[in-house]
Write a protein that binds this DNA or RNA. Structure first.
Lengths: 156, 156
DNA sequence: CTGTATCCTAGTTGATACTG
DNA sequence: CAGTATCAACTAGGATACAG
């Protein structure tokens, strides 16, 4: 499958190189609740009450994860005011939060295809109506199959 | 951002529709160790001893996660024999395991871009040498930006 | 090299009650 | 509606020892 290329002879040294971004990302977002909050945000949810009820977790869990996601810069608290109500906060996606979409939708697609379920939900491209999914592509636009993907080092 | 389309008037019902694949995927693979095992498998690791040492977890944790990944069908135990040694098992990727690549590499790319780190590692397309990343595309080949992605229901 | 067994700690979550 | 505060349950993971 994937082949490692670069200057490091000792494969064991790779894991230490700069500390893996996968590991750091999991440390930050590797909980069921955080991932589902992001899914909800992509669905368009912004209010606290909608988050915890739609996800099906307790308010305590939702509040803890929401705060972490705000601190991590994926969501932003933005004040809003319903007519006749006091000002409250809603949680809106930041650019970094939108950039996280491939992770969530890649999980969605993998689960949809490889786990038993009957979800009628599909990703689609609004502009042309075709179904969408998550793929690995190179800068030249080629689709990159597993056996053509390599991990290599770049010199700083 | 993402807009929900379909026949369901009540947004609260969406989360219940078929049970979300993201949630199921997280239940199965939502641990740091499982995700790093998949990363290692993509790096080309197949031996038990390499897995736990390169990932930096205990043998107990690695063994538990490896068994789960085998049960879930992402990895397969395959007997091999070193000359003069008894037969042992190695862990090799299945088709379902390869399909999981977009999840791991999407995390890799997000972490690399949005978390402080100096990893010199980059994904690349072996055939043409260009850098690679994970993107959302529709069947017609259009790149789908966040605001053009929708989730809709299909009738069974 | 490829694990298993045991004990212990830390983090996530559920349940429930309370506040503005 | 939008949280906070507690407490208890479960699980992942580290440390260590042992085994084929």
């Amino acid at each position: 499958m994937t082949v490692l290329q670069g200057r490091l002879a000792d494969r064991d040294a790779w894991s230490a190189v700069g500390e893996c971004p996968v590991e750091k990302t999991m440390a930050l977002l590797g909980t069921k609740t955080a991932m589902l909050i992001m899914r909800e945000a992509y669905y368009g949810t912004t209010r606290f009450d909608d988050f915890w009820r739609r996800i099906g977790v307790t308010k305590a869990a939702a509040a803890a994860r929401l705060s972490e996601l705000v601190d991590a810069g994926l969501l932003e608290r933005r004040p809003y005011r319903e007519p006749g109500q006091r000002s409250r906060d809603e949680y809106v996606l930041t650019a970094a939060g939108e950039d996280f979409m491939p992770v969530v939708w890649a999980m969605f697609e993998w689960g949809r295809r490889h786990l038993p379920n009957r979800t009628p939900l599909r990703l689609a491209h609004a502009d042309c109506g075709a179904e969408a999914s998550v793929e690995i592509r190179c800068e030249k636009g080629h689709r990159v199959p597993p056996d053509e993907l390599v991990v290599r080092t770049v010199r700083s």
